[in-house]
Structure formats: structure tokens, C-alpha cells
Amino acid sequence: MLNSLSNLFYRRPQLLTALLLGGPLAWIGVVYIGSLFALLIQSFYHLDDFSGTVVHEFTLSTYAELAATANLQIIMRTVVMAALVTLAASIVAFPIAYYAARHARGKWKALFYLAVMMPLWSSYLVKIYAWKLILAKEGIVSWIAATLHLSWLLDGLLSTPIIGGSSLSFSYIGTFLVFLYIWLPYMILPIQAALERVPNDFVEAAADLGATPRQAFRDVIFPLAFPGVIAGSIFTFSLTLGDYIVPQIVGNSRAMIGQAVYTLQGTAGDIPLAAAFTVVPMVIMGFYLLAARRMGAFDAL
């Protein structure tokens, strides 16, 4: 019995492939992709204002609603935040990745790797909670500022319009710091991988041809590592665009895309508009990925 089945598989390898792939494909291909399509279709329905029910007719009025000033502000705010977080993450991540890739070796290298992996895999909520402790009015940042007699600096920062707030945990500065913290490892790892692939011969050749270390870095190492930065930015940008828990816990009351989606589908019951909102990060990420592929970021993943 088993032998004849085995022979059948040998004669017909496509049959085996189909059998292996059937379950997973039904799952991801049908259930998951089907759900995404169902969501997309819902964005072309609209919510009847009087009855509060969803009208199942094709219309673009939900997208017109998306273009209202308040909603565009939500989108702009989220995109600017994602861009700033991405920029800051690449600046903070680069020295860590550079040291790990080009200087650390042996035991230190393993330690560095774990030191990046541990925060990456620690609980998302625990990480956000940690920042709630840090940024609280009575927390460690205020204490350090007071100890160093720099409270005036902190107060000045908090009284700045737009980015300030009643305390760090109710301001854009806080939201920004938490995003930077939780997505930073996603930036470090691709940069490190890209830096490790820069051949040492190239650097030596640059030195032989008379380049100072600074020039070698600027003209050889950095351009070769740049696809790694782009690869990392895919994660930091996409994750910030879709997140709704961080701005809910640390931040002011002005919503970002994720929060808008969450409240629209929940308390407001406006599934069509929520669906239209989710199309925004999908479209932005689509263009972002196309641009990233052109810059060779996928080879660095």
C-alpha cells in the first residue's frame, strides 16, 4: 500500500506537489487573500448616514469621504511620523550595525547579535509599557532633567507647539521615541547584513589608491551598504504606518491611520471608510516597494 503510493508519487511528482501545497495554499491563498479582497470590495460600499447600515452598492463616495480635510490630515500626520521615524532609525542604527559588521568578532559578535535580537523579539506591549514608565511626568526622564538642573529644557521642549504636550507621554515626541525604539532592530539587521557583504578587498583597494578612511567610507562602504538602509526603511516605514496601539498609549489625542481604522470599524461601525483607510498604507507601501526594488533593496533582505 505505502509502496504503491510511493511509486505513484515518483511517477507523478506534480501530484505530490499538489498534495503538499493544497492545505497551505487553501489557507493563505483562499482564506487570507480572500479576506483582503473582501475588505477591498467593502471600501466601494458606503454607509447610509440615516439608517447606519452599510449599503451594498458600488460607489466611490467613500473615497470622496476619505479625501475630506480631517482624514487627509490623519494620513499626512501618519506619513510624516513614519518618515521621521525611518530617518532617525537609520541614523541611530548605522553605527551599531557598522560596529557589529566590521569590528566585532568572535564572542563579541554573537553578543552583539543577541543584543539586537533580544529587544526585537521581546513583547511589543512590554516595550510600549516600558516607555510609559520612562516618559511619565514623575518618571526617569523628568528625574534626570531635575538632577542635572535641566528641567527648564524639558519644559521648554514640552511647551513647543505641535510636538509638545502636557508631559512627554502625551506628546508627539513621546510617540516618536516609542516608534523609534520598537522598530530600531528592524533597521539594524538589514544594514548589518549589507555591511557584512562589502568585500574587504574593496576597502583595501581604496586605501591602496590613497583614500583616507573617511573617503573610503564615503565613496565605497556607504554606497554599497545603502540598499541595506532602504531594506530596513521598508520595515520601519510600513510598521509605523499601520500601528494603532503606540499612538493610543503614548501620544496626544490626534489620531493616526491605524487608530482611525480601529475606531471606524469598531464603535463607528463604518466598515467601508475603515476599509478605504487601509487601502492608503497598502498603496503607499506598493509604491515604496517599487522604488526600493529599483534601488536594489531586495538583494539586501
Binding site: 551599531i96 557598522y98 533580544m118 516600558a130 532592530p185
Partner: peptide, 27 residues
């Protein structure tokens, strides 16, 4: 050829690692 890291790089990398771990220690 692995030269010794400059102190600026060491400081930036060390500060970055500390930034990643201090919040967890506070928890």
C-alpha cells in the same frame, strides 16, 4: 584588515545598545 574602531563609533554603538536595553531593565 580589521582596524580598531574609533572612540566615536564605539560610543555611538554602545549608546545605541544601551538605548535598546535600558527600558527593559526599568520594567
Amino acid at each position: 584588515m580589521r582596524s580598531e574602531a574609533g572612540w566615536g563609533l564605539k560610543l555611538a554603538a554602545g549608546a545605541g545598545i544601551a538605548f535598546l536595553h535600558l527600558p527593559l531593565a526599568l520594567i
